[in-house]
Every structure is written in structure tokens, then in C-alpha cells.
Write a protein that binds this DNA or RNA. Structure first.
Lengths: 230, 230
DNA sequence: CCGGTTTTCGCCTTTCGGTCGAAAACGTGG
DNA sequence: CCACGTTTTCGACCGAAAGGCGAAAACCGG
């Protein structure tokens, strides 16, 4: 009573081949053999949940390639995992820049979030939550930096946002919105045009000071500008 | 190994006497005797965390007076609670409308979030997270309904928002923003003026259809209007 | 009836996001 | 080397959203 297993799971998302994809591995053993599940594992005695998920993910990918990790939610339905002991899960959202292609074990693969294979336990619900969280935060924070390469053209960034949000966004507007918030910075270099010609695209980067998630953009603002006191 | 106690805790917030306050109870026993802590308790074997926090809160207040409950985060530092077994906590944010004054046990009291008494364990950090979450969501969702009475004047609502956000908001603008989103509705009635006179204030309510948290307002919107596909 | 008080409402300005189209800067093919 | 297609960039326009102000409305007490 009161004792239960605790596991950590992560929906690691990346935009690859133009679609938002999630890293899954195929279970070899029962329960749910041959179904696909999120990477993760049991919380160790001497680590907090965030250290734990990073440790578990290290078995699947190079953790240095993870540009962002944040808690999603606790999943705790008593029977979410069959077995003798009850298992509570802390789910995380992980992000990988689209410029990387992490090497993954042979039982692991990427799947588009909109076309998942048969999933284990409640992992599909976790992926859904991850998608929603990502879409929300792309809108009102600077989380885009975690999906983007170190340098990118505006149209490449537009593709990233479209894939992650699930709808088209205007390149003009995207650039203006991000620039106005001081998140975007031109590198000075340009990318070569494609095989069919066209004007060379300027390269941008997210300003380095902002490589973390900033506060969400408030709609009801303070009169001049103040913060939430200590 | 892998087995740990799991507790649920809630930062129950309410605007009372013009300031944002949190419900705390004074510990009688060690550890941390006479320090103040958040209500909560051990997760039961046959309930999920949300059912658990509602059950635990029922020992402190009438749960029907809780207008909103949502997960905040997991707190899992290995030594966050001293003792033989490791204790992981799922923290919740709870809200009570300012019109209610729940009866609480004798060991329980309300404290302004900006002037907390000595707190137990990591509960102060949890309260801070709750404040931040509330302030954020007030801006870009309709969460205000959970703080407000069934009917209220605009200036009363302005006071609520100011207390919860920590800065002054304009009554004119607040009314316009909420109205434009279709969240506010006049009841038709008016409130009597104060002792020093003044024009009687019109009473409003949050439209009943919206007594739940709606999706945050997206900044980068789809071209016409679509949703996140299934 | 008059001054004090509080709310309400219209108006103005600024900012923001969405859209469009022209201009710029490339390759290609005649 | 010039016309053409292609792609990016940027300015312009527009409506919507938000902040601010002050006049008018509606009450009180004297």
C-alpha cells in the first residue's frame, strides 16, 4: 500500500522527412510483445525523474543531441500496466533538431505521429499529449529553437513549423513574429539556391541567449513592465 | 529498487482579502513539525493521481468548492522527504472561487503566497510553480472563471486578476479582451453602489459553456481554421 | 440641486498578425 | 547575353487586438 513502481517515459519528437515523428522501440517480451513503446524505464533510487529519463534515453540515443526535455504529465491509471505491482509513469517530451540523425538501436525506429504502429500500454495517449504540448508551446514560446538546426533559411523554418503544427504557416509572418520577439538573428551567410534556381536564401539562427524556453507571451500585460515578484 | 512511495500534493489557491492565498496546514509531528505544508497524502492502490488528490483534499475542504484542479509537475529529488523510503510527489494546482469561504480544520489556514510561513520539504517551490502556472494561464486561457464568483462586477474581476497576476490590469481592457473571446456575459442585474456612492456596476458571469479550460490562444494560426488532426 | 464617486462607454493610438504582390537574385535554355 | 522561370525577400495594406484616456452616466450624501 502506497508502494508502487515508478517509470519514466519520453516521447522524443523530431521533424524528419517533412513530418513530425516519434522514436519508438519494438517490445520483444510480453506483455505487449511486438507492440511499439516509448523509451524509458524504472526510476532509480538515487535520481530524480529528469535525471532518470536522460539516463534511460542514453541507451537509445546520444543524449547530447536532445535539444529540449520537459515534463509532460503523470499517467497513473491503476491498470495502465498489467502486472503484480502498480506502475506510475512520469512522461516527458523530448526534442531533437531536424539537422541530426541519431543512431538508434536495431529495435528502435521513427514513426510519423499521425501514423503510429500498434502501441503498447497507454503510450499512444502520451504521444498525443506530446504533440499538443509542442504545438501549443511553438505558438507562445521560443521552443522552435529545439526543432531547428543551428542555421536555417526562413523557408526551412516554415517547413519545420508546418510539420510540427500540422498546418501551413506563412513564411513572411513567421519571420516577422519571431524577429519582433528578438528570437531570430541573421548569420550573414546565405544558402545556395536549389537545382531549379531561385534567389539564394539568407541563413538565420536563434539568438544564443534564447536557447532555453522563455516565459510565455502574456496577453494581459502589466501597465509598463514588471514581473511576478519573488 | 524501483519501489517508492508516491504522494499527491495540491497548492490550493484562492483570492481572499485582495491577495492570492494558499491553503496550508501545520504539521504536528516530525519531520518538520510546526512547519506548514500542502494538503495531500499517499496515493492509494486503486486510484489515479487525480482521484487521489480529490480524495485527500476532501479531508480539508468541501471538494465541490474546488472550481479547477490540474496537474502541475512531479517533484522527485531523492532526498526531498527524509525517511526510509523515497517519496515522489505529483503536485497539483487547485482553485477556489473568491466567493466561497470553505470551512477548514483547525490546523489549516490560508496564507498569502507572497508571505509564506516556514514551509515543509519542497512545498514552497511547489507553491511558486502554482503561482506561475496560474499567472500564465490567466493570460491565454479562460481560467479566470475558476477564480471568480458566479456573478461579479468588472471592477471586482479586475481586482481578482490583479491579485492573481501581481500587477494592475485595466478594467476597460480586461472587459474588452474577455468579451471579445466570448467568455463574458452580462447577467442583466446590477450591484448596488458602495457607501460613498457611484454608479451601480453591471453584473457579469462567465458563459456557462466555458466553465472548463479552453485551448490556449494560438499566435501562429492556420490559414483559415483547422485543428490538430487525429 | 450640487459636488463627490464610481462605473461605463466611445474614441484614439499602437501593436500585432495575415495577406498580397512587386522586386531582387539566382539558374537555365535559347 | 538575354529572356524566362523559380525562389526568396521585403514593403505595403488591412483588419483585429490591445492599451489608454476622458467624457458621460448613474448613483450617493448633504
Amino acid at each position: 500500500m502506497g508502494l508502487a513502481g515508478h517509470e519514466v517515459l519520453a516521447a522524443v519528437l523530431q521533424v524528419r522527412a517533412g513530418s513530425l515523428q516519434v522514436m519508438l522501440w519494438e517490445r520483444a517480451k510480453e506483455p505487449h510483445a511486438h507492440r511499439w513503446s516509448l523509451p524509458g524505464g524504472t526510476l532509480g533510487d538515487h535520481e530524480d525523474v529528469e535525471a532518470s529519463i536522460r539516463r534511460q534515453l542514453a541507451e537509445k540515443v546520444d543524449v547530447r543531441q536532445l535539444s529540449h526535455v520537459e515534463q509532460l504529465a503523470v499517467f497513473s491509471a491503476p491498470s495502465r500496466v498489467p502486472g503484480l505491482t502498480r506502475v506510475v509513469a512520469t512522461a516527458f517530451l523530448g526534442l531533437v533538431p531536424s539537422s541530426l540523425d541519431p543512431v538508434v538501436p536495431s529495435d528502435t525506429a521513427w514513426y510519423p505521429v499521425s501514423a503510429l504502429p500498434p502501441t503498447a500500454f497507454d503510450h499512444e495517449a502520451i504521444v498525443l499529449r506530446a504533440r499538443q504540448r509542442l504545438a501549443s508551446k511553438l505558438s507562445y514560446t521560443n521552443l522552435g529553437f529545439a526543432l531547428a538546426p543551428p542555421a536555417f533559411t526562413i523557408s526551412a523554418l516554415r517547413s519545420l513549423y508546418s510539420a510540427a503544427l500540422g498546418y501551413k504557416v506563412s513564411a513572411t509572418n513567421l519571420q516577422r513574429v519571431l524577429s519582433r520577439r528578438g528570437l531570430l538573428e541573421p548569420t550573414g551567410a546565405t544558402a545556395p539556391p536549389g537545382p531549379s534556381g531561385g534567389r539564394p536564401a539568407a541563413l538565420f539562427r536563434f539568438v544564443s541567449r534564447e536557447m532555453r524556453v522563455t516565459d510565455p507571451f502574456a496577453v494581459l500585460r502589466p501597465p509598463s513592465s514588471r514581473s511576478l515578484g519573488p
